[in-house]
Design a protein around this nucleic acid. Sequence first.
DNA 1: GTCTATATTCCGATAGAC
DNA 2: GTCTATCGGAATATAGAC
Lengths: 205, 205
Amino acid sequence: MDNHTQTDIGTEQKILLAARKIFFQKGLAGARMQDIANEAGINKALLHYYFRSKDQLFETIFKESAGRFIPRVKQILTSEDSFYQKIESFCTEYITMAITNPFIPMFVLSEVNNKPDDFLQKLFSGSPPDLSLFKKQLENEIKAGHVRPIQMEQLLMSMLGICIFPFLSRPILNSLFNINNEQFMQLMEERKKAATEFILQAIRQ
Amino acid sequence: MDNHTQTDIGTEQKILLAARKIFFQKGLAGARMQDIANEAGINKALLHYYFRSKDQLFETIFKESAGRFIPRVKQILTSEDSFYQKIESFCTEYITMAITNPFIPMFVLSEVNNKPDDFLQKLFSGSPPDLSLFKKQLENEIKAGHVRPIQMEQLLMSMLGICIFPFLSRPILNSLFNINNEQFMQLMEERKKAATEFILQAIRQ
DNA sequence: GTCTATATTCCGATAGAC
DNA sequence: GTCTATCGGAATATAGAC
């Protein structure tokens, strides 16, 4: 920090803020360096001064975004929590993250879809999450008669879809339900509890 | 094809096939007319002869895609079927559509997200689906004690997420579950039944 | 209808003054 | 560090021969 006022943010931060907004809206291919410069209130050449190229600026944004979206599955599902506690944490934390960063899910998934199939190795930091503990816990609950028979993969896909899908289809949902963004976010707040209940009820014996 | 038999398809169809493939992969902004021409095995200029511009070619593909993705909600939810029959039709038909056209959900949602908020009016052919019948049916089941209390919006979002989300995250799921595309499709076949059961169980009192 | 060649616009990146 | 001006390549689109 130097001698500027506290409310002043540095140029690099201004660029990152602007780049996030534009890349989230238009994706890598659709974003223009000029758009980002305008949004940041600076000149196009400055972007290249701080970040060498468009690709490098994009990679900065993408990595931080993917870092909020993907490792969460890992942390939660491989923790030492009980089976039911995991499901609740999963719903609450994922939806909370998405409320705070509503554009990240679509941004990450959309960009992943344009990449070659082997691109994901990088995202998982070398090793994909180990689902064996979660699977074991599920099987134990089934054996104990607390949970009806269900495949781990089918359950996990449902959990992810229930929590994340609304943020991928917000424009359509807003139109379908005839609500605005504020009302949508209210729905998502309520959804933390609704999603947990829905899933727990769906699996209980 | 080596000779001119009935299996020969016209140039326009070759272009549409190629355009679908490229636009599905890369989106509007990322697709190149040269890519489409190469994929179709023809010259770039021919694309402009059949479709005036890139935008117009894109619109052709987008409209047919959105037409398979969006009106389905409408048809199913506004039909005269019983409440439970609707849920089952919804899951089965949506997943069947997505198995047949696995790239359409991501393509449509991704492109919708880059458009201004008022863009969706066109997609709903003027009028968004009327959810009042489905909502009334749900409320009747709740009153009768067959279904536990749940908001129609929360239920519908869950149904959509459960059915569609896997097709939006296939690369990640393939990596997460360590499966290939063929195994993924097998999972989706099983999911028609699994999704229906999951939802019915989640709402039953 | 299909091609080659070219016009035209756009955009990422750099040079160089301050 | 920040700007203006510009280069050079890429992409859409058109002209015109066959």
